[in-house]
Every structure is written in structure tokens, then in C-alpha cells.
């Protein structure tokens, strides 16, 4: 794990973020569906702590992952701040610094494998819906989706009808390596 420090080239914590001008009015929190549901979650509070430089406590906390990235906070902020963008940048720091978020690192690894293999972020088997969100009829229909996918001419293992040509995949892999991602 590396010490939690903001990435100086990440513009989401630069001047556009609003970390120099948030006035703590709370309009973001009032607009936030995650604040409505998760007790204690507040984009206004995240802005305050980030402005005070409390990066370590922010990246170690669970609340960073409770934001649903709906961007209501940024759209409604009277000072054009983006708590959502600050949260995105902090999440990347947390992945390197917080030992307790292996479940997020699993998603990180899954996305990397998908991108290197196919040039896609999401593949048909990347997201599996939890059974208890689905009613009985929906569950049955959801189970049959692989079959209906084939009827439409799409394969089970790719989100693309026509895969990306190999020589282009090679370029994509170079870009991912040259940006220190893979």
C-alpha cells in the first residue's frame, strides 16, 4: 500500500473541482440520493474534509464508495463544484492506499482483464444481478437471457457483435501500458 496522496495530474481535484470555492451550503447533500439512503453520507462533508486535506481519513472510509455517481451534486451546486469528481479521484487513491477494499480491487482487476482481452470494460458475465432484487417471473426471464442473446446474433463472451480486429487490440494494449495502467 502506498501513502494516500492526490494525483497532481488528476484534474478532478484541480481548480475545476471547486475545492477552493465550496461554501458549504449543502445543496449537494440535499440533492443526493445516496445521502437519502446511507446514514452519514454527505457530499458536502466530503468537500469539507478534502478542503482541509484529510485525505487519509477519506480514503480509509467506507462512505467514499456509497456515492452512486448521479452527478446531481455537480449539476445543482451554485458554485460549480463537483463533489462527484472529487469522489472519483479519491477512489483511485483509495485503491492504492486502503487495504480493506479488496472487493473494489476485484472489480478493478476484472475491468483490466476485459480491456486487455477484448477492448471492452463490461462483458456479458461481468455483472450478475443479485437474485433478491428480482421477482420470480423476472428471475426466470433473466435466466434465459443467454439464449435470447444468441438469437440476436451476439455471442455469450463478447459485448460486441463484431469483435475488435487483433491489430487494433494491439494498439489498445499499447495505450493501456504506456499510461501505466496494465
Amino acid at each position: 500500500m502506498v501513502p494516500p496522496e492526490l494525483d497532481p495530474i488528476d484534474e478532478r481535484v484541480g481548480p475545476q473541482s471547486g475545492l477552493n470555492r465550496c461554501m458549504q451550503c449543502g445543496k449537494c447533500t440535499a440533492s443526493c440520493p445516496a445521502a437519502f439512503i446511507f446514514e452519514g453520507f454527505s457530499p458536502r462533508d466530503i468537500m469539507l474534509r478534502a478542503m482541509k486535506g484529510e485525505i487519509e481519513s477519506l480514503v480509509m472510509g467506507e462512505e467514499l464508495w456509497q456515492c452512486a455517481q448521479c452527478l446531481s451534486c455537480a449539476a445543482r451546486c451554485p458554485r460549480d463544484c463537483s463533489p462527484a469528481g472529487v469522489i472519483q479521484a479519491l477512489r483511485i487513491v483509495a485503491l492504492r492506499s486502503n487495504p480493506n477494499i479488496d472487493h473494489m480491487r476485484m472489480i478493478e482487476d476484472g475491468v483490466k482483464v476485459n480491456l486487455m482481452k477484448t477492448g471492452q470494460t463490461i462483458l456479458p458475465d461481468t455483472l450478475v444481478l443479485p437474485n433478491d432484487l428480482l421477482g420470480p417471473r423476472t428471475r426466470k426471464r433473466y435466466k434465459a437471457s443467454a439464449k435470447h442473446r444468441r438469437e440476436l446474433g451476439y455471442r455469450a463472451e463478447d459485448s460486441r457483435r463484431v469483435e475488435i480486429p487483433e491489430e487494433d487490440l494491439e494498439k489498445i494494449r499499447i495505450l493501456l501500458r504506456e499510461t501505466d495502467y496494465c
Binding site: Q88, R91, I92, L95, M104, I107, Q120, T179, D180
Partner: peptide, 16 residues
């Protein structure tokens, strides 16, 4: 290629 937008919002892929 994919735009990686969803991983960008989940916060598991750096912006670069």
C-alpha cells in the same frame, strides 16, 4: 474501443 466510462465512475480505472 469501449470508452471505459463506467469504470471511471465506479472509480476503479485512473483517468489517464
Amino acid at each position: 474501443s469501449s470508452c471505459i466510462g463506467c469504470a471511471n465512475h465506479i472509480g476503479v480505472t485512473p483517468f489517464l
